[in-house]
Computed example of a mutant assay.
Amino acid sequence: MTGWLRERGLVLVNVALFVLFLAAMSVTGWQVANQEFADHGLAPESFAAFLGSGQFVEAVFENWESEFLQMGSYVVFTIFLFQKGSSESKPLDGPAPQDEDPRRHRDDPRAPWPVRRGGITLVVYENSLLILFGILFLGSFVAHAIGGAAAYNEEQLQHGGEIVNVVQYVGTSQFWFESFQNWQSEFMVVALLAGAAVYLRQRGSVESKPVHSPHDETTG
Rank of each mutant, 00 (worst) to 15 (best):
T2R: 13
W4F: 15
W4T: 14
R6C: 03
L12T: 05
N14Q: 12
V15L: 13
A16Y: 00
F18S: 08
V19R: 03
L20H: 02
A33Q: 13
F37W: 09
A38G: 05
D39M: 08
H40N: 08
L42W: 05
L42Q: 13
P44E: 11
P44R: 06
P44D: 08
A48N: 02
S53P: 01
S53D: 01
V57M: 11
L69Q: 07
G72E: 08
Y74M: 14
V76K: 00
T78F: 07
K84W: 10
K84N: 11
G85W: 01
G85K: 01
E88W: 15
S89A: 14
P91E: 05
L92H: 06
L92M: 12
P95I: 08
P95M: 10
A96Y: 15
P97T: 05
R104I: 07
H105V: 06
R110K: 13
V115C: 09
V115Q: 09
R116P: 04
G118R: 01
V124L: 02
N127L: 00
L129A: 11
L138A: 15
G139S: 07
F141M: 11
V142L: 14
A143K: 09
H144C: 09
G147E: 09
A150F: 02
N153W: 08
N153F: 08
Q156P: 00
Q158I: 05
G160D: 04
E162R: 10
I163T: 15
I163G: 11
N165Q: 00
Y169G: 01
Y169C: 02
F180E: 02
N182F: 10
W183T: 07
Q184L: 12
S185C: 06
M188C: 07
V189L: 15
A191E: 02
L192H: 08
G195E: 04
R203A: 07
H215G: 06
D216R: 09
G220S: 03
